[in-house]
């Protein structure tokens, strides 16, 4: 396998795992929110935030994949960058932090959001606190993204 193909595994993993995590997380939160809205459809606006929150990991993954695609010169003008197998592996590994943290943190953030939605159903005035709790989980995806970005911007 050439370097390009290996790097593309990284692209697929970053966007795929982040996307899987986010879809599970948003899915969980969405179900809970629908449940709450059967009682009170007026809460839609408030709950929307909590449902959307686990979606960011997917975006982080997309972002990392996009950076690799740009780095490889696959889109835009100019030719595809020739890379060695070793460089391909480097790009693959650089994608892993955001992929792994995205996958797991989105699922767990989704669970926190579900609990938050339950709380918001009973005590809507306390919703800000739930948002903050959910962000605690997301921080680790942010860290993963950070390292991925640093690696991709670095001297690879």
């Amino acid at each position: 396998m050439g370097g390009l193909e290996i790097a593309l595994i990284g692209v697929a993993l970053a966007v795929g795992m982040g996307g899987i995590g986010s879809s599970i997380g948003v899915g969980l939160a969405g179900q809970a929110a629908s449940g709450v809205m059967t009682e009170d459809p007026g809460k839609f606006g408030r709950l929307l935030l909590l449902v959307a929150l686990p979606g960011t990991q997917g975006i982080y993954g997309l972002l990392a994949s996009f950076l690799v695609i740009m780095k490889l010169g696959l889109i835009g003008g100019g030719s595809v960058v020739e890379i060695t197998q070793s460089q391909g592996f480097k790009l693959l590994f650089a994608c892993l932090p955001v992929a792994l943290t995205g996958l797991f943190s989105a699922i767990h953030q989704g669970k926190v959001c579900v609990a938050g939605i339950m709380m918001a159903a009973k005590r809507p005035e306390e919703m800000g606190k739930t948002l903050v709790l959910a962000v605690f989980v997301e921080f680790y995806a942010v860290l993963g993204l950070l390292i991925t970005i640093l690696l991709l911007f670095g001297k690879l």
């Binding site: 975006i59 982080y60 972002l63 996009f66 740009m70 889109i75 921080f139 942010v142 993204l145 950070l146």
Partner: peptide, 22 residues
Amino acid sequence: LSYTRLFALGMATAVIAMMVNV
């Protein structure tokens, strides 16, 4: 170290914006 998030989120915004343009 927790303030690292500022950097990561700022970069994320910039890169997604770039992506939209591309």
